[in-house]
């Protein structure tokens, strides 16, 4: 049935030119426009144009904004459980993550948590492993972590603290000058294609791949519930399908760029390294403790963590083979 035209205003949390996240938003908008034959009149705003990234959820929730394209990690202060949908230290890889969301009950819990707020989430962007970060000196073991200063966000930051590092909060633009002058000894940031635009290779010569703190990441499209209900089922289907397609498009769109960025770092004198396995074991153990602590503090967190862990226990034997 042909639906009446709906206007959908979407605020992105990232500049639309940003590899992965930002470009995924633009790709999604393009697909929706075409696939809906214009019945969804989507208008996409680049980062900060209407609402700052950390406030997108509130704006969608109170209906001043129809929808937002953002990361579940940004609402960790409001809904600690939801960050497990955005990216998890030692969490699942990209395909396993989707398996849990779509076929393992993850998305249902996610929808339930947001439904209480009058918000509908649609998983809408997928990235595989982030880089492990930039370090002033080589990471040889626990000694290279304890007593050092790092910029690390979210749950991974807690893990670093457990191992004796001091964790520093810095905005995106403050990282470079502080890394340059040694206020911090290292930082995680993003994937190579994005890290490239920060110029970290000039001030830190050790680049670690891959990142244990986020083996895969998922972004969300969040839509105000009243707005969602005003759309037809066909329009819902267009949005959900466009989001699934955006995941595929997004996760494959950066492979070459990431590889080229790494070559560029090497040419700039950066050594590409991997974390020592013994240290990774320590990170992993600390991650377990952090997850237990967070689960004790928040019932939703516990529920999501248990659902994810149960799925991984069931699918693990196969996921390990296909990885």
């Amino acid at each position: 049935a042909s639906a009446k035209t709906v206007k959908l205003e979407v605020q992105s949390a990232w500049p639309l030119t940003l590899p992965a996240s930002g470009r995924d938003a633009e790709h999604f908008a393009g697909v929706v426009k075409t696939a809906s034959e214009g019945s969804i009149d989507i208008k996409l705003y680049s980062a900060g144009k209407l609402v700052p990234a950390l406030q997108i959820f509130d704006a969608v929730q109170n209906g001043s904004l129809d929808a937002g394209y953002t990361s579940p990690l940004y609402v960790a202060g409001r809904f600690p459980a939801v960050q497990l949908f955005g990216g998890v230290p030692f969490g699942p890889g990209a395909v396993e993550y989707l398996g849990w969301l779509y076929n393992g009950g993850g998305l249902e819990i996610w929808r339930e948590i947001y439904a209480k707020q009058g918000v509908v989430p649609v998983p809408c962007g997928l990235m595989d492993a982030e880089a492990g970060g930039w370090y002033k000196s080589e990471i040889t073991g626990l000694d290279s972590i304890a007593g050092k200063k790092f910029r690390f966000a979210g749950l991974a930051g807690e893990v670093m603290k457990k191992l004796g590092a001091s964790v520093v909060l810095l905005g995106g633009g403050d990282i470079y000058p502080n890394l340059e002058r040694g206020v911090i000894d290292g930082t995680e940031f993003s994937m190579p294609a994005i890290d490239k635009a920060m110029g970290f290779e000039k001030v830190a010569k050790n680049y670690y791949l891959p990142g244990w703190h986020q083996p895969a990441a998922i972004n969300e499209l969040i839509i105000n519930k009243a707005k969602w209900d005003s759309m037809s089922e066909a329009q819902h289907a267009v949005i959900e399908t466009a989001c699934r397609e955006t995941m595929l498009w997004g996760v494959t769109s950066t492979e070459v760029e990431n590889a080229e960025a790494i070559e560029g770092f090497k040419a700039a004198g950066v050594t590409i390294r991997q974390f020592p396995p013994e240290l990774l074991e320590k990170f992993k153990a600390a991650t377990g403790e952090v997850m237990a602590e967070q689960s004790a503090k928040n019932a939703d967190f516990k529920r999501v963590w248990e659902s994810l862990s149960a799925y991984r226990a069931k699918a693990g034997a196969w996921a390990a083979v296909t990885k």
Binding site: P15, T17, L18, G172, G173, D174, Y176, P177, E180, K196, A197, M198, G199, F200, K202, V203
Partner: peptide, 15 residues
């Protein structure tokens, strides 16, 4: 810093 972010240019180069 904001220009680097918006123009996708290395902040270090701009500095």
């Amino acid at each position: 810093v904001v220009m680097g972010d918006q123009l996708r240019l290395p902040v270090g180069d701009l500095f």
